[in-house]
Each structure stands twice: as C-alpha cells, then as structure tokens.
Computed example of a mutant assay.
Amino acid sequence: MKPHQLFFHQYRSMYRPYINAANDCLGRHQLFTAQWAVMKYIISTGPRTLVDIAAYQHVEKPTITRTVQKLIELHYVEVIPGKDKREKKIQLTELGRQVSADVEITIEQFQLNALEGISIKEQMEVSRILEKVKNNLVK
C-alpha cells in the first residue's frame, strides 16, 4: 500500500470504532457524538444559529436541524430570538449545562484511554496533520 493510501486506510479503520465506542459512552447521557458535537460547539462559542452550526461541522442544515430538535426534546438546548425575527439561536439550557459537565468527564476519560501509549508530542503531530488534511479538503 502506498503511504497516502495507508494514511486514509488507517483513518477510516479507526473512525467507525471510535464513533461506536464514543456513542456507547455518551449513551449514559442520552447522547450521540453528533449531538455532543453541537453542544460542545455551543459551549465553546456561545449561542449559535443552525446555519453557523452546519457550517462549522461541514454538514447540511437539515442534518443539524434534526440533531438540534432531538437536543430540544431532551431539554439540553433551547431556541432564543436573534437580532431580528427571522434569526433564531440555539443555546444550552441549565440542564444542558449540567449534562455537559458530566459528559466532559466521561469523554475525557474515554479519549485518554483511547490514546493510551501515545505521547502528547505524537498526539499534537497527528492533530496538526489532520488539520492540514481537513483544510486541503474544504478549500
């Protein structure tokens, strides 16, 4: 296998097991990785529109709409008015903030276990490389 083929083969072979295992961990909080990604984005940036969230995650708005609707049903997020009547922003509820604090602990331990035996230097190098690949793909 050529190096570029091996790179993407290893990425693909790691991705599904990671998502499946992360979803198992998140299940105790009634969440999936896609929902947690939305909550994490709102935690780090503050209230956001569906368009903002979709653009950040590089997915279509209908996908985010369904994800956010489930978070609303769980009472983890709520819709608030934006600058004008057409703009609606999504923010965490008090319950969402409480759940997020618990999820942060769960996910941190899960990720640390997944990275066992991999140095911080190696983690940073892989992160840097993946960021470059992502930037090449979204040009």
Score class of each variant (00 low, 15 high):
residue 57 Q to R: 01
residue 47 P to D: 09
residue 17 P to T: 08
residue 120 I to K: 12
residue 24 D to P: 04
residue 58 H to E: 06
residue 78 E to N: 10
residue 128 R to K: 08
residue 49 T to Q: 03
residue 106 T to N: 05
residue 136 N to I: 08
residue 10 Q to F: 09
residue 42 I to F: 01
residue 53 I to G: 00
residue 58 H to Q: 11
residue 35 Q to N: 06
residue 19 I to W: 04
residue 100 S to P: 06
residue 138 V to F: 05
residue 16 R to E: 07
residue 44 S to Q: 13
residue 13 S to R: 11
residue 9 H to R: 06
residue 85 K to G: 12
residue 14 M to Y: 04
residue 39 M to C: 14
residue 108 E to S: 15
residue 109 Q to P: 05
residue 31 L to G: 00
residue 61 K to I: 13
residue 31 L to S: 00
residue 75 H to G: 03
residue 113 N to T: 15
residue 125 E to V: 14
residue 89 K to E: 10
residue 112 L to M: 15
residue 1 M to C: 08
residue 117 G to V: 09
residue 18 Y to I: 07
residue 34 A to S: 15
residue 72 I to H: 04
residue 105 I to N: 13
residue 123 Q to F: 04
residue 64 I to E: 02
residue 36 W to L: 07
residue 46 G to V: 14
residue 47 P to I: 03
residue 71 L to K: 01
residue 135 N to C: 08
residue 139 K to D: 12
residue 28 R to I: 08
residue 65 T to L: 14
residue 55 A to F: 03
residue 41 Y to W: 09
residue 97 R to I: 03
residue 41 Y to M: 11
residue 117 G to E: 12
residue 5 Q to I: 07
residue 107 I to R: 05
residue 104 E to K: 12
residue 76 Y to M: 07
residue 132 K to N: 14
residue 99 V to C: 02
residue 49 T to I: 01
residue 61 K to R: 14
residue 4 H to P: 09
residue 77 V to K: 00
residue 115 L to M: 15
residue 29 H to Q: 15
residue 109 Q to T: 13
residue 26 L to I: 15
residue 32 F to L: 15
residue 113 N to R: 15
residue 52 D to Y: 01
residue 61 K to V: 10
residue 105 I to H: 13
residue 100 S to Q: 10
residue 113 N to G: 14
residue 75 H to W: 03
residue 3 P to K: 10
residue 58 H to S: 05
residue 116 E to A: 12
residue 103 V to C: 07
residue 121 K to Q: 12
residue 136 N to T: 12
residue 17 P to L: 03
residue 58 H to I: 05
residue 28 R to M: 06
residue 37 A to T: 01
residue 71 L to G: 01
residue 100 S to V: 13
residue 54 A to G: 03
residue 40 K to I: 14
residue 127 S to H: 10
residue 129 I to L: 09
residue 32 F to H: 13
residue 79 V to M: 08
residue 36 W to R: 01
residue 116 E to S: 12
residue 28 R to P: 04
residue 91 Q to R: 12
residue 15 Y to T: 05
residue 81 P to V: 10
residue 29 H to I: 08
residue 54 A to F: 00
residue 63 T to E: 04
residue 16 R to V: 07
residue 48 R to A: 13
residue 8 F to M: 10
residue 10 Q to V: 07
residue 131 E to Q: 06
residue 122 E to Y: 06
residue 34 A to R: 00
residue 52 D to K: 06
residue 31 L to V: 10
residue 114 A to G: 08
residue 22 A to N: 05
residue 129 I to T: 05
residue 110 F to T: 02
residue 4 H to G: 05
residue 70 K to F: 02
residue 31 L to I: 14
residue 69 Q to G: 11
residue 40 K to R: 15
residue 96 G to P: 00
residue 61 K to Q: 13
residue 4 H to E: 10
residue 32 F to T: 14
residue 38 V to Y: 01
residue 125 E to T: 12
residue 122 E to Q: 14
residue 49 T to W: 01
residue 87 E to I: 13
residue 52 D to C: 13
residue 23 N to A: 09
